[in-house]
Design a protein around this nucleic acid. Structure first.
Lengths: 222, 222
DNA sequence: TGTACATCAGTGAACGCGCGTTCACTGATGTAC
DNA sequence: TGTACATCAGTGAACGCGCGTTCACTGATGTAC
């Protein structure tokens, strides 16, 4: 569908690796896939042929390194999630106040998703998930990135003396952030409020009064 | 990828419509696409050929009714969103208390998404969006469904005497609900808390104390 | 009431494309002797 | 130090598939006369 002529044959022909270094192709394929994801933001034009073409290799060479496209994507997502984890951890390290830190992490998450729409969409999508491949025993690649969110939420709840369950709160927040960026991205014509307001609303709600059991609603008359 | 043999040739051969009734094929194609979405939950195997095959027509007949796959999807999503709107409105009508009503609407939204994963994924995805086709002037098909959420949020905020902005709150809630169901669906291996708890957490946070400007944090010592 | 004909609904056959995947092959390079 | 050879990294050529899309065609049916 999308014009592919620019990638089609960009002249590069890989130099063959030296003996014993065949595994280098593996990394080149991963990097090629990341490049495709970052440019072709509408996903799913990442195919075995597209990746090997981008890497300057023959399609069959793919099978020397991976058994399937799913194997490659799993490797790609490990790299992407590590990058996201670093972004979140860096944002958390910049701010002292626990609640401001939570807002900063949320903002960093959304910024990453907006700056790398293709990569984020892939990362948050279903294709690279172990379950999508039938690998229900492999670890989820996103766990360390989620851990940053969980830590930040835990600290913010503690600082606010909230009794809400940190894991419940953090997973709900993660899902909400994902919804924010993905729905905004897929519906540019909707009259969205400013992203910052939505993030503020979310992050504030997380620590604002909710105990995890009932509505406290302190200012409700009844 | 997915076995397509069951649909491939199910023997049915459409009877040709009578003169003047050629438009009936249009509805048949829409219904065929909906059937594909509801069974083939991993999306995107909805193609012109797949839809016409499912409808028992020749591939070229598609062009008698639609100019492109995008046109068909736009028609499909109008139907799907109307169904979702009805589900939400029905849930809202069952409950008197504004805050319980909000929770009921959220629950209905998630239930719909979980019961119709293929349809919901398509509906919430990017493919059927006008912007995805370059039709930036066509109305968003989801507007009436969102209006139910907005109304319910407005009423809940009013009942809680909250000064939060209803539109900001409602769009954030919508995005959060979308994130909940889509992330849970794409990551079945993650140790999610019960969906009901996440919904409760979200719906309670919406009306719980947040004013839209600052953290009230009434129980915070400082 | 009968017939010629325009129109409408739809198909037959074919095209080129990118895809995943296979099999046989090449040619450089490290190693054993 | 020189050479034969096994191994390794990778390609050439081809396959069948589903896809979107095109063009020419068919055959039923309503309508004008």
């Amino acid at each position: 569908m999308v014009s592919q002529v620019s990638e089609q044959q960009n002249g590069r022909r890989r130099a063959r690796n030296r003996r014993g270094e065949g595994g280098k192709l593996r990394d080149e394929l991963v990097q090629a896939a990341r490049r495709l994801l970052s440019t072709a933001d509408h996903e799913a034009e990442v195919s075995i042929r597209a990746v090997t073409r981008e890497a300057g290799a023959a399609p069959q060479s793919f099978y020397l390194q991976f058994a399937s496209l799913g194997e490659l994507l799993y490797a790609v997502y490990a790299v992407e999630y590590e990058e996201l984890r670093q972004v979140l951890a860096h944002a958390a390290g910049q701010v002292g106040d626990p609640q401001a830190r939570l807002a900063a992490v949320c903002t960093a998450y959304c910024r990453y998703a907006q700056e790398q729409p293709g990569r984020y969409q892939a990362l948050a999508g279903v294709r690279g998930q172990p379950s999508h491949q039938g690998w229900d025993t492999r670890p989820l690649p996103g766990a360390p990135a989620f851990a940053v969110i969980l830590d930040t939420v835990t600290q913010a709840l503690a600082a606010a003396e909230s009794s809400a369950d940190p894991f419940l709160t953090a997973s709900t927040l993660w899902a909400s952030l994902h919804g924010l960026v993905s729905l905004r991205a897929s519906r540019p014509a909707f009259p969205w409020p400013p992203l910052a307001d939505m993030i503020t609303s979310l992050a504030a709600q997380v620590v604002g009064g909710h105990t995890g059991r009932r509505l406290p609603s302190p200012d409700k008359p009844v």
